[in-house]
């Protein structure tokens, strides 16, 4: 019984796949962790400048994006339950909502960055060099690198989820074989986790 089952299927080991995904997530945590340490050290050394520079950021947009990511995290977590319940329509819908919310996040980010660029605040700009102190320039450098790297992860996460949706529509992912969906969820939650720290560190300094 067991052997015929194995002969029919190609190699599929959900537990090993999950461990692999977690190991990858650990490298991501340490990548962003390193950036967070750089941020903390510079903030410690340039206390006042960081407070001044952070006043330029819009807490409201940051808060909206936090809510957007938290809701999208819930919808993709629900998708894992929905696929186990064999409700594939709902799974697709929940994944679709997640991708849509990711787009909303990126749209917000686009307008937010656009406004900064309009005001002459971007890495290496003359306006920044002439009007701001060294510490404030450091703050904006870290802001663009860290939120930029995070936005790149959002884009990769979106592509990952869309790929999962295609496989789901083609019945390659189903209630007995859904580790890829689970792993895309893990990746998406990681993106959410990083934002949970980016938000207070960049937007909530008063």
């Amino acid at each position: 019984m067991e052997q015929t089952l194995h002969a029919q299927h190609d190699h599929y080991d959900p537990e090993a796949s999950k461990i692999g995904m977690w190991l990858f997530i650990f490298t991501e945590l340490l990548l962003f962790g390193g950036l967070f340490i750089i941020y903390s050290v510079y903030r410690y050394l340039n206390h006042e400048a960081f407070h001044l520079a952070a006043a330029e950021l819009d807490t409201f947009i940051g808060a909206v994006n936090t809510v957007v990511l938290l809701v999208s995290s819930m919808t993709i977590a629900m998708a894992t339950s929905a696929v186990q319940l064999k409700n594939y329509r709902l799974t697709l819908l929940l994944l679709g909502i997640t991708v849509f919310l990711a787009l909303v996040f990126l749209g917000n980010k686009y307008f937010e960055w656009g406004k900064k660029f309009e005001h002459g605040i971007y890495p290496g700009s003359d306006y920044l060099k002439e009007n701001f102190s060294q510490g404030e320039i450091l703050f904006f450098g870290l802001y663009f690198v860290m939120t930029g790297l995070h936005a790149l992860h959002i884009i990769i996460g979106m592509i990952f989820i869309i790929w999962v949706m295609v496989k789901l529509a083609r019945k390659k992912i189903h209630s007995e074989r859904y580790v890829l969906l689970e792993n895309s969820g893990l990746y998406w939650h990681l993106v959410d986790l990083i934002w949970i720290f980016l938000f207070p560190l960049f937007y909530l300094i008063t």
């Binding site: 995290s73 819930m74 977590a77 894992t80 689970e182 969820g185 893990l186 939650h189 959410d192 986790l193 949970i196 720290f197 938000f199 207070p200 909530l204």
Partner: peptide, 19 residues
């Protein structure tokens, strides 16, 4: 305070959302 809230949120996301 803000970091403490972030840590609690991280715990919730990892414990429930990340299973």
């Amino acid at each position: 305070g803000a970091l403490l809230f972030a840590v609690i949120k991280t715990f919730l996301v990892m414990y429930y959302f990340m299973h």
